[in-house]
């Protein structure tokens, strides 16, 4: 029983990482209507940016975080303007856009590999004493991940519910043509969507690196399928669904990892992903929570 509770505790931390990443990915899909396969690599970009800021300016991971978030956000806007925007303007098939994000993924991932090599990198984080909270055991580091996730979710919620930008995003993912007809400026909207989506990726990358302690240029890409799993369980393009999907995938993989070979932790997530796609491709919460 205590093992189950403990692994649920760990699952909450994993879920926090997935939730940040999943909401960003889902938001972008909802507005632009194609899957971004380079999303995981924006996460990795965030990890290496934090590393640079740490070694060059001596900034701690948490102090570097705002800069990293803005930088990965701008990188997303740049990629949209340089690569994807012209395809969208030509009215290209979403599949062509999907394949070109793979080109972007290859460039980011291999660019990082060219500079840093494949060896494992680490943030310089001090020792972290575990705290007992009821049946759970958390390190302060894990609690900071949880806290960041909660803050990020609240920010996204406020953005989607109460700002003009958020309302435009929801309108765009609900009925594209109608949104255009009522005069939503799509250039402004897509730029902001990319900024927010990849900024979330940067944040997710940093918290993932804090959580798993070490990373390589392929860490983000490897995590992408876990994010897909959460996003699809929640219904793709629906940010609120992604939060719930993250909780489900995070807890399921952590619980599974404590009862079977932990090497298959990710395989469990992929299994859930395939199962959901086959049984209920619109997501488990399709009827509720229009993102």
């Amino acid at each position: 029983m205590s093992i189950l509770l403990l692994s649920i505790g760990f699952g909450l931390i994993t879920a926090s990482v997935i939730a940040i990443a999943g909401v960003g990915l889902s938001l972008q899909f909802g507005v632009t209507n194609f899957v971004n396969f380079a999303y995981g690599d924006f996460m990795t970009l965030g990890m290496y940016l934090t590393l640079i800021l740490g070694t060059a300016l001596g900034l701690s991971v948490y102090a570097a975080l705002p800069i990293v978030i803005v930088c990965t956000g701008l990188a997303g806007v740049l990629v949209n303007r340089l690569v994807l925007d012209s395809f969208v303007r030509k009215g290209a098939n979403p599949i062509i856009l999907l394949i070109s994000t793979i080109g972007v993924s290859l460039i980011i991932q291999s660019g990082l590999l060219a500079v840093w090599g494949a060896q494992f990198q680490k943030f310089s984080l001090g020792p972290s004493q575990p705290l007992h909270l009821g049946p759970f055991i958390f390190t302060p580091r894990q609690l900071s991940i949880l806290g960041l996730a909660v803050v990020a979710m609240v920010v996204i919620h406020v953005l989607l519910r109460y700002t003009r930008l958020g309302k435009a995003m929801r309108a765009m993912s609900d009925r594209r043509t109608l949104a255009r007809v009522v005069g939503i400026n799509t250039t402004w909207l897509t730029d902001w969507t990319w900024f927010i989506s990849t900024a979330m990726a940067g944040l997710a990358g940093v918290v993932l690196a804090i959580n798993i302690a070490s990373f390589t240029p392929s860490t983000g890409f490897g995590f992408l399928l876990v994010i897909f799993a959460a996003v699809i369980v929640g219904g793709i393009g629906k940010p609120y669904g992604a939060m719930l999907g993250a909780l489900i995938i995070g807890v399921i993989t952590s619980v599974a990892a404590s009862y079977m070979d932990s090497a298959y932790k990710d395989a469990v997530a992929f299994g859930v992903l395939i199962l959901v796609l086959l049984v209920r491709p619109q997501g488990i919460f399709a009827s509720r929570g229009r993102g």
């Binding site: 690569v83 394949i99 793979i102 080109g103 993924s105 290859l106 291999s110 060219a114 090599g117």
Partner: peptide, 21 residues
């Protein structure tokens, strides 16, 4: 040691995008 290999994949990625474009 991965520099060259990595560089090649960057080229492949660029070629892929430029071709599609």
């Amino acid at each position: 040691p991965q520099l060259i290999e990595a560089f090649r994949y960057v080229i492949i990625g660029l070629l892929l995008i430029l071709t599609l474009k």
